[in-house]
Design a protein around this nucleic acid. Structure first.
Length: 259
DNA sequence: TCGGTGGCCCTTA
DNA sequence: ATAAGGGCCACCG
């Protein structure tokens, strides 16, 4: 988070009294130094979102303004927060469909590592999931698996950035800001069959391949789901895929591609 | 098959 | 600055 911006915001806040409240908010707003917040409907019920000119900065289940402000201050910072205003266009629809990839977000308050994690997480489409270890590999830190989980736990904009689509490699949902049950519920609504994924894992399989296309995928990849029974092959790991000359799917990237 | 366990690595107090 | 701990994971018995 920019220290300069924080100091500027503080100084402007200090002008209370000399400027009218409206003038003050107007200035801060124009500088992107104040967030507005409103309550909206989401697939998991009412939520409060904070936003500014850069995009959405924070989302939580709707509780009270005080509680929201406290959580916001703790996670986003001391930027002023004021009720009202219009959230970025298309947010409601995006949240309803789960296609949130184009919604603008403000991740200024995060560390580069956290930003990397969340940026890659945005690539997971509706109806699909990826393991924590996949995110770690994608950001070039294959062993930072646990740190990825921690970073996702600090996702300031759940639902908008679909951290619920990142699950454990054994097919269990893993933890979630709104609890594992909610995570499971959302995934089910999005069309993910967690039981099937857990079953595959139990039998030792991580990937699905097609003998007609020669491509292997994560089991939840939409390409994998179209493989016909006669062409479908289950794989234990990337090494086995290589042995059998399957190449990784370019959509779900089941393994780092050597090119 | 499942629970325990050490390794890993980023963040925070 | 340093140590503890977390939305994990692979391995072991």
């Amino acid at each position: 988070m920019s220290h300069e911006e924080d100091k500027l915001a503080e100084r402007l806040t200090g002008l209370r009294g000399r400027l009218s409240e409206n003038q003050r908010v107007e200035i801060l707003s124009a500088l992107g130094l104040v967030d507005h917040y409103v309550t909206i409907q989401t697939p998991i019920g009412a939520a409060t979102v904070a936003f500014n000119d850069r995009g959405i900065s924070f989302l939580r289940r709707a509780t009270s303004p005080e509680r929201f402000a406290a959580d916001y201050a703790r996670q986003v910072g001391r930027r002023p927060l004021t009720p009202g205003g219009r959230p970025p266009a298309g947010v409601l629809t995006a949240l309803r469909t789960g296609r949130t990839g184009n919604i603008r977000v403000d991740l200024r308050s995060l560390t580069p590592f956290q930003r990397d994690v969340l940026t890659v997480t945005r690539e997971v489409p509706v109806g699909e999931v990826r393991p924590y270890s996949w995110i770690a590999a994608r950001i070039g830190r294959p062993r930072a698996v646990r740190a990825v989980g921690t970073a996702l736990g600090h996702n300031p904009v759940p639902l908008v950035i679909p951290c619920h689509r990142v699950i454990r490699s054994d097919g269990q949902p893993g933890d979630y800001i709104f609890g594992p049950d909610t995570k499971q519920t959302i995934l089910h609504a999005e069309g993910v069959d967690l039981d099937h994924l857990a079953e595959l894992h139990r039998r030792g399989f991580s990937f699905v391949a097609s003998e007609s296309t020669g491509v292997f995928c994560h089991p939840s990849c939409h390409n994998a789901r179209r493989i016909s029974d006669q062409h479908r092959v289950l794989l234990t790991d990337a090494a086995q895929a290589a042995e059998r000359h399957f190449r990784p799917c370019r959509v779900c990237r089941p393994a780092p591609v050597a090119d």
